[in-house]
Structure formats: structure tokens, C-alpha cells
């Protein structure tokens, strides 16, 4: 069977058709940057973008999410209802989906977290190739641009077209509905992609390097620049730590307990009620975050909890680069 392609100008039509059956989340422009957003007008969708401000995690681990509801008068705790509307994530870069796969590991192993896992049901992922900018370093963490793991459909850009590959039954079903927008594809193979931002060596063996680097001077040097603002945590696809707090709706008996994105860079993160904080020095916290990515937490295939999206470098308020820090260790 010859492969199929879709012309760039037909993309809105393809999105329109998806919208009839699914909630569609895709990248759209926002000023000079991009964000993932529920699509109203299919013309908004962009497939040529570097990276969105926030990763896809915001749909599965929202910045602020009710985990328990309660009634003060009845003295009852209740499970909140979790929506899992059928959703197509359209125009997704592969490191982005790798971030979700890492979160699946974090919330799906050990004690299973239904509040997260429920939202992972009924998802369809349609990927697209990208051109790495000055920040992306996904290839260095084992995610070359042609890695299609987890996608139902993958779009490879060439000459104003996208080659359409259906990788799962769900994907095939969608592609068959797109038939009127598709043409025969003349492009075979994968584009040659060069990353400007790289680690000096591949991630294999990196865990051991971290274990020997606890007292490396790079932590103190880096921490001198760091403001402990926590931006790196917020924009990271694999940072999933959260704080928990309660709120009662004024004038009612209804209350809710929510979890909110938290930051291990903030002093209070480890502080117990007695006042003791266990990573008191800023360099302890800088080291903790990066060690967590490359040594403390690995998935079942020993893959690091960094997907090379470059967001923490791009958005750092103090110009700290995780690749510079890593390269000082390697």
C-alpha cells in the first residue's frame, strides 16, 4: 500500500472532521509563543512551532485540581467526578508525548493514582515532526525526532505536505475518515535532523555519574545564579510534585481539597511543622531537581525523567541551562 500525505492547507479540514467527534487539543499561537488549547476554530491550529509555554501535563495533572470534596455539615468526604472526554491531541512533538509516558509511569506504578489515570483514558495522539531550535536536546536523552512511540498517527513534514502514518487501529480509523483530504505520498524516509543543543554523551550510564557528583562544584556555581523561582518545575513535562490544600466555599458547607503544582526549588517544600527544612541550601535544591531527572527516578526501561524539550532553559529567569550543568558533570 502506498503511503498517504495531506497538504498543509487541508489540515483545518482534517481538524474540523475530528472536532465533530472529539475534543481537539492542539498548539495555537499566543503572541510570539505557542500554547496547547482546546480548538474552536480549526484555522487556529499551527503545526510549525518550536515549543508551547506549558507541556501537555496541564491536561492530565492540572495546575489546580480538586482531589477530594467534602461536606462540613454531613461530615462526609467524597470522590470528585473526573472528566475523561474523548480527546485528540493534535500536532504533538514526540518529546511531549514522552513526557506523558513518564507521568504514566509515575502515577501508574506503586500506588495507582486514579485521579491522573482516569484522564488518560480516551486519548488519541497525533504527532508531528519538528525542527529543533537552540534549546531542544531531546536526541541526547534518547528521543530522536523520528521516535513515534505512543502515537496513533504521525505526521512527517516535507515540501508543504505531511506524510500520514497510522500506527494504531484508532489511528487507522481516523485516517480512513480523512480519505477525501489525502493524496499519494511521494516522500519516503525520515528527515535528517540536527540538534544544536546537546549533551556531551548519551544518557546511558548517567545515573552512576550523578551518584558520584553529589559534591561537584557545579551545584554551588549554578545555585549562585538561581532565584529559586520554580519556573523550571512548572514548565517541565515530567515535574509532577504537588502541594495539597483545603478550601471551604464561603457561606456554604461545601469544601474541597486540591492539589497544585509545587516546586522543589522553594525552601518550604521540605519544611515540616516543627520548622526543620531538609534541603536548606539552594544548591541542595538545584542538585535535587536535576538528580531527580537523571538519577533518582527512571522509568521501567531505565529512561530518565527529562525529555529534552528545553523549556527549563528557554524559560529560566536566571539563564541557567540544564545542558550546561549536565555537560559540566559528563
Amino acid at each position: 500500500m502506498s503511503s498517504k500525505a495531506i497538504a498543509r492547507e487541508k489540515i483545518p479540514d482534517a481538524v474540523s472532521l475530528l472536532k465533530a467527534k472529539y475534543r481537539v487539543i492542539a498548539p495555537v499561537p499566543k503572541g510570539k509563543t505557542f500554547v496547547f488549547k482546546k480548538i474552536g476554530n480549526p484555522q487556529e491550529v499551527v503545526l510549525d512551532y518550536n515549543t508551547t509555554i506549558l507541556p501537555l501535563k496541564k491536561f492530565f495533572l492540572p495546575p489546580d485540581e480538586v482531589i477530594v470534596k467534602y461536606n462540613l455539615k454531613k461530615r462526609e468526604y467524597q470522590e470528585p467526578e473526573i472528566e475523561s472526554e474523548p480527546t485528540v491531541f493534535f500536532g504533538i512533538h514526540n518529546y511531549e508525548l514522552q513526557g506523558i509516558l513518564r507521568l504514566d509511569y509515575a502515577f501508574g506504578t506503586g500506588v495507582k493514582d486514579a485521579t491522573y489515570l482516569k484522564k488518560r483514558e480516551n486519548n488519541i495522539f497525533i504527532g508531528v515532526t519538528y525542527t529543533p531550535d537552540d534549546y531542544h536536546f531531546a536526541e541526547s536523552v534518547g528521543i530522536p525526532t523520528d521516535l513515534k512511540e505512543g502515537f496513533d498517527i504521525f505526521l512527517t513534514k516535507y515540501n508543504g505536505h505531511y506524510r500520514v502514518e497510522a500506527l494504531t487501529d484508532k489511528g487507522k480509523n481516523i485516517v480512513s475518515q480523512w480519505s477525501e483530504f489525502l493524496e499519494d505520498c511521494s516522500y519516503d524516509g525520515d528527515p535528517v535532523v540536527h540538534f544544536k543543543n546537546k549533551l556531551k554523551q548519551s544518557v546511558a550510564g548517567i545515573r552512576e555519574i550523578f551518584h558520584g557528583a553529589y559534591n561537584h562544584p557545579v551545584w554551588k556555581e549554578t545555585s549562585k545564579k538561581c532565584y529559586s523561582c520554580g519556573t523550571c518545575n512548572l514548565v517541565c513535562p515530567t515535574c509532577y510534585c504537588f502541594d495539597v490544600s483545603d478550601e471551604v466555599v464561603l457561606g456554604t458547607d461545601q469544601g474541597a481539597r486540591s492539589r497544585r503544582w509545587d516546586s522543589c526549588q522553594i525552601l518550604g517544600f521540605t519544611e515540616v511543622a516543627g520548622g526543620e527544612a531538609f534541603r536548606e541550601k539552594r544548591y541542595d535544591r538545584v542538585r535535587h531537581r536535576m538528580s531527580r531527572k537523571f538519577a533518582y527516578i527512571m522509568d521501567d526501561r531505565d529512561r530518565p525523567f527529562c525529555v529534552g524539550c528545553g523549556r527549563c532553559i528557554r524559560q529560566c529567569t536566571a539563564d541557567i541551562s540544564i545542558t550546561d550543568v549536565m555537560n559540566a558533570l559528563l
Binding site: 509515575a106 502515577f107 506503586g110 500506588v111 493514582d113 509532577y240 510534585c241 504537588f242 502541594d243 495539597v244 492539589r259 509545587d262 522543589c264 517544600f269 521540605t270 519544611e271 515540616v272 516543627g274 526543620e276 531538609f278
Partner: peptide, 14 residues
């Protein structure tokens, strides 16, 4: 050991 155990289920990181 005393630590800030918020979620109790190995997720929240504290």
C-alpha cells in the same frame, strides 16, 4: 525519620 509526608502514596515529592 521525620519528613513532610503530604500525599502518603509516593507521588507529591515532599
Amino acid at each position: 525519620l521525620e519528613r513532610k509526608m503530604k500525599c502518603g502514596v509516593g507521588k507529591c515529592g515532599h
